[in-house]
Simulated scan of single mutants.
Amino acid sequence: MNAIHWPEGYLPGLTDNFASNEMIVAGLSAADIWPLLSNATQWPGYYKNSANIRFYDNKGPVLEAGMAFYFETFGFPVEARCVEYVEPGNGNPGRVAWHGWAGEEGTSNRLDVHHAWLVEDLPQGRVRILTQETQKGHPAKELAETRPNPMINGHQDWLDGLVSAARKSQQNPDHN
């Protein structure tokens, strides 16, 4: 199976916090998942922990490499830039990742994250959805020590909602 591409400074285990969530489900494909993930305006419809998504430079709603956007999650106002965007196809996984940040640089409330997704078709009609996030900064240290872990639980909610929305779209293709 494929792995996330990590930029320098964000390698898991070398940051202040790391969350990894994965689902492998039958009956869905990367083509079912990708439109719901790549179109950021879809997120609040299936993931309650995302809100107020905005795009800059007349871009959006579908993410693309280099694109700047804003959203709110886990109580943080996140400015973000899409740093990787590859649609799934021809046996290759879909990849989307963004660098996100909240708070003023150089302050104790600064949070920097690299949030990456990998969506790949597997044999026997299965799809694998992997989301991983590394975080740096004092808020990341606090999140890493919190139990239950809000990042693991929140990202699981995102995966669960994504799969549920894809199944609903599959059953009602005219209501996408």
Results as ranks from 00 to 15, higher is better:
residue 60 G to W: 04
residue 94 G to K: 12
residue 83 V to F: 04
residue 118 L to C: 04
residue 71 F to H: 15
residue 77 P to G: 03
residue 143 L to A: 02
residue 91 G to E: 04
residue 98 W to E: 00
residue 109 N to A: 04
residue 53 I to L: 13
residue 61 P to K: 10
residue 107 T to C: 00
residue 53 I to W: 01
residue 81 R to H: 10
residue 86 V to C: 13
residue 61 P to Q: 09
residue 120 E to A: 09
residue 77 P to I: 09
residue 114 H to R: 07
residue 140 A to K: 00
residue 133 E to H: 12
residue 89 G to C: 06
residue 96 V to R: 05
residue 117 W to H: 09
residue 28 L to K: 01
residue 103 G to F: 05
residue 131 T to D: 08
residue 151 M to K: 12
residue 99 H to T: 13
residue 29 S to F: 00
residue 97 A to K: 06
residue 137 G to M: 03
residue 107 T to Q: 01
residue 74 F to A: 15
residue 93 P to N: 06
residue 100 G to K: 12
residue 48 K to P: 07
residue 61 P to F: 14
residue 110 R to W: 09
residue 75 G to L: 11
residue 51 A to T: 06
residue 133 E to C: 10
residue 111 L to E: 03
residue 146 T to I: 09
residue 147 R to I: 14
residue 61 P to D: 07
residue 63 L to D: 05
residue 144 A to D: 03
residue 96 V to E: 06
residue 136 K to E: 05
residue 104 E to D: 12
residue 36 L to G: 13
residue 89 G to L: 13
residue 51 A to K: 15
residue 53 I to N: 11
residue 30 A to K: 07
residue 120 E to F: 00
residue 64 E to G: 14
residue 45 G to Y: 09
residue 152 I to D: 11
residue 99 H to D: 14
residue 50 S to I: 15
residue 85 Y to G: 05
residue 34 W to N: 03
residue 102 A to P: 00
residue 122 L to M: 04
residue 131 T to Y: 08
residue 40 A to Q: 13
residue 141 K to A: 05
residue 83 V to S: 08
residue 25 V to P: 01
residue 136 K to H: 07
residue 90 N to L: 12
residue 139 P to N: 05
residue 34 W to K: 03
residue 106 G to N: 02
residue 26 A to Q: 06
residue 104 E to V: 00
residue 76 F to Y: 14
residue 67 M to S: 11
residue 49 N to G: 09
residue 116 A to T: 02
residue 25 V to I: 02
residue 47 Y to H: 13
residue 54 R to P: 07
residue 26 A to P: 03
residue 88 P to M: 12
residue 119 V to T: 06
residue 75 G to S: 04
residue 103 G to Q: 03
residue 99 H to A: 13
residue 117 W to Q: 02
residue 49 N to C: 09
residue 148 P to F: 06
residue 28 L to A: 00
residue 36 L to E: 09
residue 43 W to V: 08
residue 116 A to M: 02
residue 29 S to G: 10
residue 81 R to Q: 14
residue 140 A to N: 02
residue 88 P to I: 08
residue 47 Y to P: 01
residue 37 L to C: 08
residue 131 T to W: 08
residue 124 Q to K: 08
residue 116 A to G: 07
residue 138 H to L: 14
residue 37 L to E: 11
residue 66 G to V: 09
residue 111 L to M: 10
residue 72 E to P: 05
